[in-house]
Design a protein around this nucleic acid. Sequence first.
DNA 1: ATGTTTGCAAACAATTTGCATTTTT
DNA 2: AAAAATGCAAATTGTTTGCAAACAT
Lengths: 154, 154
Amino acid sequence: MNAVTVREKYRAALQASGARMTPQRGAILDAVLGTTEHRTADEILEAAQKLDSTVSRATVYRTLTLMVEIGLLRRLDLGRDFSYFDPNYVDNPNHSHLICLDCDKIIEFDDPELTACGRKIAETKGFELSASFVRLEGHCQCLKKNGSCPNRKK
Amino acid sequence: MNAVTVREKYRAALQASGARMTPQRGAILDAVLGTTEHRTADEILEAAQKLDSTVSRATVYRTLTLMVEIGLLRRLDLGRDFSYFDPNYVDNPNHSHLICLDCDKIIEFDDPELTACGRKIAETKGFELSASFVRLEGHCQCLKKNGSCPNRKK
DNA sequence: ATGTTTGCAAACAATTTGCATTTTT
DNA sequence: AAAAATGCAAATTGTTTGCAAACAT
């Protein structure tokens, strides 16, 4: 979905619930959806403030919640003590994630077999499936190959 | 693995790192592994205090971390803002979870196909897989069927 | 005018940690 | 005595919330 379309959907969903499009919400939208990277709330705050210096942390959190509710964004738990936000959800809602324990690199993958498995299991157990999250943790080749990882933070 | 064996493994692992088995650690072990239920740190504290009233919250957290490191227990993230601890990990390390959004009911399942999928993907992406977590969220039949759920907390 | 959104600072909740004390060896 | 473990209370951290001021309709 292109940027204009997303923004329109956003505006429409906001209006439908009596809410408004504001400069701050626009900046946050761009900060989180103007990339394919998985960002943290903190990173989104920083990026949004570059677009509109009045954006505050509170508004970032409120807006991200809003966007998740509208379905423009997915909140991801990748085993850290904070959330990542996944901007690729709208275009590809079934994908999952692989995260590197060394460098935090996040790789997406979309495996229809995996999706089908989940659906089948939920059905077997009499569940009406709402969402499924697959997280694979491991070590990418980087560290082993080079002795260091470009993304490495610590 | 039966209770005696687990306790032995625990004691051995503790000793191997120069640590000791204490009454508090024993009570916490029993509180978390004396059930097949997935408990929270808070529930474990409560159960442990019934066995030994001197157990404190700090020791619960410290001991759970220890048990996870030793590999007797798995820390689970099921989409809430706290962790669950999975006592069935040792006997069945590959299983995954289905959680009901209405009543928090947790169902385990073990699907070899799912496990194989994860492994295959990690390999494809050049990752050395350390762990995989599959979480399915949905609604169990309970609420729809009866209009209420026995476990329902709110 | 009325309702919505904002930033700020304070509140929150799960978890972790510093430290003086107790327990074990 | 030395090392390890404990409880307590305070600290930490990501996130949420109350509120008065600013803004939009």
